[in-house]
């Protein structure tokens, strides 16, 4: 479980996060949504420690990051998997080497065990044939799957995904969403996903956190959105004409 208490972050005079509280539970996919500039990425990077927050506490499994020493922080980082927006795969390494990378650095497995673990992770994301190819030689969807395989290679307790569906076609987006949900439930991971994809919200949003102008404007499950009193979240999720029709149909019980 991850708890966030009063998280604040500013860049000079620009206050991006204005005291956000949130709880992300184990075994659930927690989605962060909001318009561009609402603070989603800064929120995610602050929780990950890539940005130093100004105020607030972040607790992983009840332990405050601010009270951890360097060794504990490094251990925590090894329990975190991250899927970046562009995949962030290492260009000069093959698909298999990318997935083996965290194992090479942190694990004491033998070379054969590392390879076996990496192959298991690649098989788990349905990539069995691209082991020897470089990231530039595979499609965007495959790159995202490799990134997920790399993220789960160390058996993480926490999985963070920044816009995992950006730049992907609808069919591949559904595959990635399903994969994230399955992995979360299968391995009991606390998953936090930043997304703009409303399909993802309605498909895998065990918990949805809606950010607006750096504050938490709403939170609930995907099933709560339709009947929410908060017009902002309803308008945001059901903004496109297609989603408006879906909303109307759902309300009429069609």
């Amino acid at each position: 479980m991850i708890q966030i208490e009063g998280l604040e972050k500013s860049f000079g005079e620009n206050y991006v996060l204005k005291g956000i509280d949130a709880v992300f539970e184990k075994g659930k996919t927690n989605l962060i949504i909001g318009r561009s500039g609402s603070g989603k990425t800064v929120f995610l990077k602050s929780v990950l420690g890539l940005y130093q927050s100004d105020h607030g506490e972040i607790l992983f499994s009840g332990k405050k990051i601010s009270e951890m020493d360097k060794k504990q922080r490094n251990k925590l980082r090894q329990e975190i998997g991250m899927v970046f927006q562009g995949g962030a795969l290492f260009d000069s390494s093959t698909v298999l080497e990318n997935v083996m990378f965290p194992l090479n650095i942190f694990s004491d497995m033998s070379a054969a065990e590392k390879k076996e673990r990496a192959e298991f992770c690649l098989e788990r994301v349905d990539l069995k044939t691209a082991h020897d190819r470089f990231p530039a030689q595979i499609s965007g969807g495959m790159q995202k799957r490799v990134a997920i395989a790399r993220a789960i290679s160390m058996n993480p307790k926490y999985l963070f995904c920044d816009e995992p569906n950006s730049g992907l076609d609808p069919e591949t987006s559904i595959v990635i969403d399903s994969l994230i949900r399955e992995i979360t439930h299968e391995f009991g991971i606390t998953t936090v996903v930043n997304t703009h994809d409303m399909n993802s919200v309605l498909e895998i949003g065990d918990k949805v956190l809606f950010l607006k102008d750096g504050v938490k404007a709403w939170e609930g499950s995907k099933d709560d959105i339709l009947n929410s009193d908060n017009q902002d979240i309803v308008d945001y999720v059901f903004r496109s004409s297609l989603f408006k029709k879906v909303k109307d149909a759902l309300r009429k019980g069609v």
């Binding site: 990950l48 890539l50 980082r77 975190i80 927006q85």
Partner: peptide, 17 residues
């Protein structure tokens, strides 16, 4: 520089490297 703008360096940092 390319590793920086494509978040590969962030990926290393997140891993605790």
């Amino acid at each position: 520089g390319t590793m920086r703008v494509t978040e590969q360096i962030d990926a290393l940092d997140v891993m605790g490297i």
